[in-house]
């Protein structure tokens, strides 16, 4: 059978998510954000929540998330997405309310909002992309940057005496009584992408079913900020990031 004969609608097994629109994403080649955007769009569609979802976009590389996924969005100030989500969900309790945040947004400038929204058990889902760097502003140190890693603001490598330690905020999140589900995933391989999608689905179900706050951390890569090819970045992430930030569930109170 010829390839062209296979390419028919009934044989299609994978296509771009329906809710991901045609706008070209502004992300650099190989950026993990694109993969996670696809998963968010797929899960919303599969759960039938297209017309029942409110996304909260961050400040950082994902600031334009609202341009790509066709649901209602609110663009937050830097770090404040969990505060916005708190009100959006309490005032609209039947909606899926999720935030989409990077490490600077979630774990540095927004730490207070992150911890308190989680600790109150807000029925929101937090998608937290940890790539250990500030991508949007040009590759500066993030709260999650590993020790020794060179960035624009740690040109000789992160020195813990100067810059403090990398922050495993998800571990902190898992300690809080208000979180029901905290997990860490990655999207660097097909199997990992499938696992990450399941995690996002679980978090979104928890929001809809009002089971508490869910945090899905996704170890991402930033080939531009890390100054590597996307593939090298995946290998580096696998080799270095997973030691400090191991993949898997940190907490799951909802079976």
């Amino acid at each position: 059978m010829e390839t062209k004969d296979i390419i028919t609608p009934e044989n299609k097994v994978y296509s771009a998510p329906r809710l991901l629109n045609d706008s070209t994403m502004h992300y650099c080649p190989g950026c993990s954000h694109g993969v996670v955007h696809k998963l968010v769009a797929e899960v919303i569609d599969e759960m039938g929540l297209e017309h029942n979802a409110i996304g909260i976009a961050p400040v950082g590389c994902a600031v334009f998330a609202y341009k790509y996924i066709d649901v209602d969005w609110i663009e937050a100030a830097h770090g404040r997405a969990p505060a916005l989500a708190t009100a959006a969900k309490r005032l609209n309790p039947d909606r899926l309310v999720f935030t989409y945040q990077g490490d600077g947004d979630f774990a540095a400038i927004g730490t207070a909002e992150s911890i308190h929204a989680a600790n109150r058990g807000e029925n929101i889902a937090i998608i937290f992309i940890n790539n250990g760097i500030y991508g949007m502003t040009g590759g500066q140190m993030a709260p999650t940057t590993l020790e020794g890693v060179k960035t624009a603001t740690t040109p000789y490598g992160r020195n813990v005496e100067l810059n403090g330690y990398p922050l495993d905020i998800s571990r902190l999140m898992a300690q809080l009584d208000g979180t029901c589900y905290v997990t860490r995933q990655s999207v660097h391989k097909p199997a990992a992408v499938r696992q990450a999608k399941k995690a996002i689905r679980k978090a979104f179900e928890n929001s809809i079913n009002r089971r508490g706050c869910s945090v899905v951390e996704i170890l991402g890569t930033c080939s531009s900020g890390w100054k590597m090819t996307p593939h090298q970045a995946n290998l580096w992430m696998e080799e270095h990031m997973k030691e400090k930030y191991p993949i898997g569930d940190l907490k799951n109170n909802v079976e």
């Binding site: 299609k12 097994v13 994978y14 771009a16 992300y27 190989g30 993969v35 999207v187 097909p190 992408v193």
Partner: peptide, 17 residues
């Protein structure tokens, strides 16, 4: 569909028989 799953820009459609 491994290619499509990891594609950050949703460029790939996959067909299978």
């Amino acid at each position: 569909a491994s290619c499509a799953l990891v594609c950050p820009d949703a460029c790939i459609e996959v067909y299978k028989i």
